[in-house]
Structures are given as structure tokens and as C-alpha cells.
Amino acid sequence: MIIDVIIALGKIAVVLLVGLGLGAYLTWVERKVAGHIQARMGPSVVGPFGLFQPIADGVKLLTKESIIPRGADVPVYYLALILALVPSLLIFSVIPFGPSFTIFGKEIKPIISDVNIGLLIVFAMGSIAVYGTIFAGWASNSKYAFIGSLRKAAVIVSYEVVLGFAVLGVILIAGSLSTVEIVNSQIEKGIWYIVYQPVAFILYLFCMLAESGRVPFDIQEAEAELVTGYNVEYGGMRFGLFPLAEWYLNVVGLSAIAVVLFFGGWSGPNIFGPLSPYIWFLVKTFALVFFTLWLHWTLPRFQAKDITDIAWKILLPIALLNVVVTAFVVYLFS
């Protein structure tokens, strides 16, 4: 009993530390990628290859004066921060990082909670994050922030639907909502589900970009029109928290889920010894994260009206069609 609690706390601590540390260092990765994509250098002054830049940024953000705008709704203003950060962290609770192993006669699963409805949790958390955005915009009593948050709400409402239907195909094939089960079924069949569900993967990618507010769906930030959107009235580390949660933690979490769904989770040739599954999982996840960054620094932004248009008129019918066809195929061949 006590050991279980300690193991659970240990897992949570590891995931939290790794998640937040990764989030901070992804800023460095993103700036390097962005720089090189535009034939620039990226951060290169602080430390070797600019590796200490996130620390410097963190110190800068923490020591900055942070003000609360006049007319702001103070409790909601602070609550929005929590509402933005917590769901992004909770996504990590259902990500399986590897197969279960035994240590001191005790079976340990490298996943915080292996619930039966893991994927539902992911979708729920991915979209509960929208409240952070909406209330941040509303509570700061600023029109720019508010317009940004309303745009984000519109995007989430449309893409959540598409996301659900896109993933349904994979769930039909795997026959389970649990993340561990989905990976196990891929390992059993010896095939990654992207082979069966390429359309669903593309739809998922679109939804991932929309939910994490990445280009081409970053209308809630839209630097050119809205300054920086919903978090414009926040200062200091509070300002840094929103991109950390939305751009980094969310992207890593959803990429990991995409790896679970479409790329066979931790499966891969056993070439790194006992750590092999974890390394494969991280490699796949960061390949997807890199792809997201690559898209971010390549594409322009859609117009606000186009984004909901695409979701409802193009992506949703395709997703429905995909589900129907998959259901027929699964029914006939199993």
C-alpha cells in the first residue's frame, strides 16, 4: 500500500520534472530550429551553442515586474494560469513510456495511471486547456486578449469534434481506449496503425496543431493582429507560462499520444539494450515535435474564418467517412 503510493509519487515526480524541463528546453530547440530554417543562427551566446539560454530566459522572466491590468478580475486572472497549465500536465498521466518491468518482485508500469479510457482523458484535457485561454483573455480586461481567447474557443470547439472522429478509426482497429492496450495490439499485429489509418493520422496532425495553437492555426496569438493574443496582459513568468503550457507541453503530450496511436508506441528494434523501448518512444515523439516546429516555421497563418470552415466542411466529413469505412472493414475482416 505505502509502496504503491511511493511508486506513484515517484512516477509523478519523474514525469513532472521531465515534462517541465523538456518544456523549458524546447524553447531552445524551437529557437534553434526557427533560426536555422530562416538561415540564422538562433541563440548562440549564452553557454555552448546557447544551451543556457532557457535558464537566462527563466531568470529574466522571474525577476521581471509583473503587473495586473486595471479592471482585471484578479481571482480569475490567477485561476486562468492554473487552468492553462494543469490540463497540459495531466495529458502526461496517460502516456505509456515503455513496457512494464519488474523490480524487487514488484511490477512497475511506466505510466502514471493506466485507465481504461486513457484516450478520452487526453481529449478532455486537451480541450479543458481552452478554459485557461478563455479566462485569461476575459479576466485581463483587454480587447486584444479577449478576441484571441474567443478565437481559440472557436477553434477548440470545431477541432475537438474532428479529433474525436479521427481517432475513432484507430480505436476500432485496436478495440480499446486504453493507451497501453493500443500499443500492445500494434506490437502483437506487428504493424503500425499509420499503415491502416493514414487519413486519420493527417486529420490528427491538423487537430494537434489546432489544439496546441501552432501555425497554421495560431489565430489566438496572431502576433500581427492581436500583439500576442490572450496572454498579452500577463507579465513576467506568468507570461511565460502560457506558451510553456500550450506550445510546448501540449505539443509534446499530443505528439506522444500520436506516437501511441499511429507509430506503435515504444515498439522498435532492440538495439539500445534494456533502455531501448524508452529511447524509441522518445525518438518518435521528438521526431513528431520537430515536424510540428518545422511546419510552424514554414507555413503562413490561416484566416480565422477559414479555420472553422476547414474543420466543419472538409475535415469532419473526411473523418466521418474514414470511421464508416474502417468500421465496415473491421466488421468484414475480423
Binding site: V33, I37, T298
Partner: peptide, 24 residues
């Protein structure tokens, strides 16, 4: 086939491999 995406992505990845033109 997202041909326009692929065109853009190929341009950026070529840029990324290229040496930066920055003068520090």
C-alpha cells in the same frame, strides 16, 4: 497530397541544412 505544403517544407529543410548567412 499536400503538394504545396511539401514544397514549402522542402524549402525550409534545405535552408536548415545550409550554413547560416548571419554575420555576428
Amino acid at each position: 497530397l499536400f503538394l504545396d505544403f511539401i514544397k514549402g517544407l522542402s524549402v525550409t529543410i534545405r535552408n536548415m541544412i545550409k550554413k547560416p548567412i548571419t554575420t555576428q
